[in-house]
Amino acid sequence: MPFDEPSQIPRPPRRVAPDDRPVADRLADIRARIDKAATIARRAPAAVTLIAVSKTHPAAAIEPLLTAGQRDFGENRVAEAQEKWPALRERFPDTRLHLIGQLQSNKARDAVALADAIHAVDRSSLVTALSRAMEQEDRRPDCFLQVNIGDEPQKGGCALPDLPALLAEARGADLPVAGLMCLPPAGLEAAPYFALLAKIARDHGLVGLSMGMSDDYETAVTLGATHVRVGSALFGARA
């Protein structure tokens, strides 16, 4: 089906301000903001999962968030996650790990063995690899199909016209498709892209929406995000 392209509204540059508060205070503030945004949108705050994006951060930086009660974390690379998380999960076994970066097909089995959710399923070869890996590992992590919502050649994600075929293939392969994921274009207002992803999800009977990061997660929540991926607002800016 055709999709309407969002108007490209410039967004003023926004950076997460330095925050020297204890990480528990930052976490509480972000959770409060999520709850407020959900309430404004007449949604249940509990319907939104906060994913703390811990990529590039060592275990020592992650432990205070775990101690403060955060349980969902996001990593970009399978190898980095394999180094950090087995030991952390021994101490915090109820942690849920989300792989949010582009995934190579040859890493599918490792990803399935490790992750509770995979947020960047974007091509046929990966669907096939994940289906095989789930049979081999007897694990079925949630899968989000990544949509290249801004039609940007430098970004991963399925092109909008190709999404119906990819979704049909994923369902035919019996992947547990939880919803859709996107990264809106940098420098543009994110709301139209979030609204478009929500519409596409509804059209295809999908509930999950993995969208929104440190500078726009509140907007994403008001537009239906079920998972927001927040890194720098929790951990501080990466070098």
Rank of each mutant, 00 (worst) to 15 (best):
F235A: 04
G74A: 06
H98Y: 09
R14D: 02
Q136V: 07
D174E: 15
D203G: 07
Q70S: 11
G224R: 04
Q104T: 03
G157T: 00
L160N: 02
T67Y: 02
A41F: 08
F73Y: 06
D20N: 06
R43H: 06
M134W: 12
R109M: 14
I200W: 00
S232W: 09
D142G: 15
L234H: 10
R89S: 12
R43Y: 06
E189Q: 13
L180C: 00
A59V: 12
A195I: 01
L206I: 08
R26K: 13
Q154T: 13
D151R: 11
T39C: 09
S125K: 12
V228K: 01
A201N: 07
F144H: 13
T226E: 07
A61T: 10
A87G: 11
T56K: 14
D29V: 01
A108Q: 03
D110N: 15
G208H: 07
Q8T: 08
R238C: 12
H57I: 14
Q146E: 14
E152T: 07
E135W: 08
V147Q: 12
D19K: 00
R109Q: 11
A201Q: 02
L206V: 02
A38M: 10
L99E: 09
L66F: 05
P93D: 13
R89C: 14
A190E: 10
A61P: 12
M213V: 11
Y193V: 06
M213R: 14
V78L: 06
A108W: 00
F235Y: 04
K199W: 03
P86D: 11
E90Y: 10
G212F: 08
P176G: 13
A178I: 07
Q136K: 09
L103P: 01
E83L: 13
P184M: 11
R96M: 05
E137P: 07
G208L: 08
D162Q: 15
A165N: 08
L196Y: 01
L196Q: 08
D142T: 13
I100H: 01
I9V: 13
L88H: 11
F73Q: 09
L97R: 10
F194D: 02
R42W: 09
W85R: 01
I62V: 13
A41E: 03
L97Q: 08
F92W: 15
G205W: 14
H204T: 05
E218D: 06
A225Y: 02
D216R: 06
V207P: 04
A239E: 15
R21F: 09
V207R: 11
W85N: 00
R11I: 06
L209C: 07
L65Q: 05
S131H: 10
P153S: 09
P176F: 11
L167H: 14
T222F: 08
M181N: 02
T219M: 06
R14A: 14
C182L: 07
A170H: 12
A44N: 15
V127N: 03
P58M: 14
F92Y: 13
E5N: 02
R238K: 10
R77Q: 14
Q146M: 04
D203E: 14
M211A: 09
V121R: 01
K155E: 03
A24V: 01
E189G: 00
Q136P: 01
D203H: 12
M1V: 15
F73N: 07
L166R: 00
